[in-house]
Structure formats: structure tokens, C-alpha cells
Amino acid sequence: MIAFLKKYEGLWLFVHSPAAMIAALLAALILLGAVFAPWIALVDPYDLASFSLFDGLLPPAWEDGSNPKYLLGTDDQGRDMISSILYGARLSLVIGLSALTIAAVLGVGLGLAAGYYGGRFDAIVMRIADVQLALPAILTALLIDGIARGILPTAIQQDLRVAVLTLAIALSLWVNFARTARASTFVQMNKEYVQAAIMMGQHPLRVMFVHILPNILGPLLVIMTVDLASAILLEATLSFLGIGLPADSPSLGTLIRIGMQFLLSGEWWILWIPTVFLVVLVVSINILGDFLRDVFNPRLR
């Protein structure tokens, strides 16, 4: 009985936490919408032929002068807002998730090794992390972007924007993973099961990945969720600053930047609908992150 409860405690807590369930539902909906955007969306915002200027600046369906075909209205180019947002979320999520994966692999790998070997290797990794910390996420991302502008020929720059943006975000997030993995590994290194494995003469890689890694997944999962939110925010911020993605392949941040032009005119939906959508997405992810933190650290409940 107790074993059963322990095993499914996370699940039990989940179905008894309305906030977590709603957040999961919203996040799942947005994820599905983003994945299936090409099949759901009314128009393809990248394809100039699929929309027309004549449909421009239509308000959402509940306002006067709207076209019921465009439920949330259109922008100045005549693009359906829902379609833009779905494609925008798709791009934001692709960048966020790939940056997260790179950061996690790099950070967890370095953190595990630093915690396992300790000593000089640990010192070097941590000093690099110090330098990285002195240059906060947004600065790192901007810098990499600037470097890419300086090094890459202009022709390639446009094609590589997504890659550069992803790399910039990944590099600014790896420290979180490295520090968490290192701290957790230190705790595990003192556990007797790890000493037993080392004593047996098992390969360091096996000790790190088969023995230690499964035991530090909890805190890493929390970092992963929180950092996914950060990655999406960072991408939006960079695109907002006009340094991320160009207007013809809009992410959520780019959509908001475009919407800013309509802050003072009457077309509020062009700015606020993508904004609300972005906030809902990030809030959902953060609520899930909070929930996971509670599950893995029950004392804070």
C-alpha cells in the first residue's frame, strides 16, 4: 500500500492540484497547436500568397467590422492572428527546446564530471561558470548575436539566425544545469552506493550516468522546466530588441515587437493577443516547474 502510494505520489499530487492540471492542459494545447500549425492554421504567414492586404487590420470576431473567418483578427499585412501565433509559438518552442537540450547536455555533463572528479577539474569548470555568471543570460545572447553579425557573411546571416539564436540562448543557460548537477553530484558522491560502485572498479562514465544521474534527475527536471520558460522569454526578448528573428519569420517576440507599432493606435489586438498568449505559455510552464519543485522537495509544501 505504502509502496504503491510512494510510487504514484507525484501523480496523486498532480490530480489534486488544479493549478498544475490547468497549466499542463494549456501547455499541452499550445504544444499541440504549435506542432500541428501547418495543418490547423488558416494561412501560412511565411507564404505571401496565402493572405492578402485587403484583409488587413481586421479586429477580433467580437468587435464591430470583423470578419468571422479571422477569429482573433488580422495584422496590417492581412495575416490571420491565430495562424501567426501558432507559427510563432512553433518557432519559439523549437528554439527554446533545442537551446534547452544543448544547455542540458553540456551543463549536466560538465556538472557531473566536476562533481565526480572534484579537485582541479571542478575548479576549472566552476571558474568558467563564474565568468559566465558575470555575463548574464541576455548579455551572452546579445554578444553571440553580435559576434555572428561580425563574422558571418551577410548572405548566410539570415539563414543562420535560428541557429545563432539557439546557440546564444543555450550558452546562457548551461551554467544553471552545471551548478545544479555539480551540487547534486557532490551529495551523491558521499552516498555509499556510489562508493560501492567506485570500489568495485566500475568505469567512471558508468558510475556517473548509470548510478548517479538517475538519482539527481529530480532537481534537474525542475531546472529544465524553469529554464524552458527562461529560454522562451529570452528568445522573445531578443526578438523584441530586433536582434533575434526577422519580421518575415516571426516568433512570439517578433509578433509583439510588430504589435508595439500599434500601441498608440486602435488596433490593440495586434499587440496584446500575442502578448497574452506568450504570458499564458510561460506561466503554464512555470506553474508546472513549481509543482515539480514541490514534488521533489516535499518539505517546502
Binding site: K191, Y193, H211, P214
Partner: peptide, 8 residues
């Protein structure tokens, strides 16, 4: 409690 890997 610590000598057996709890995930195995």
C-alpha cells in the same frame, strides 16, 4: 538507506 541505489 544510502548503500543501495534507490533508482535501481
Amino acid at each position: 538507506y544510502s548503500s543501495l541505489n534507490s533508482r535501481h
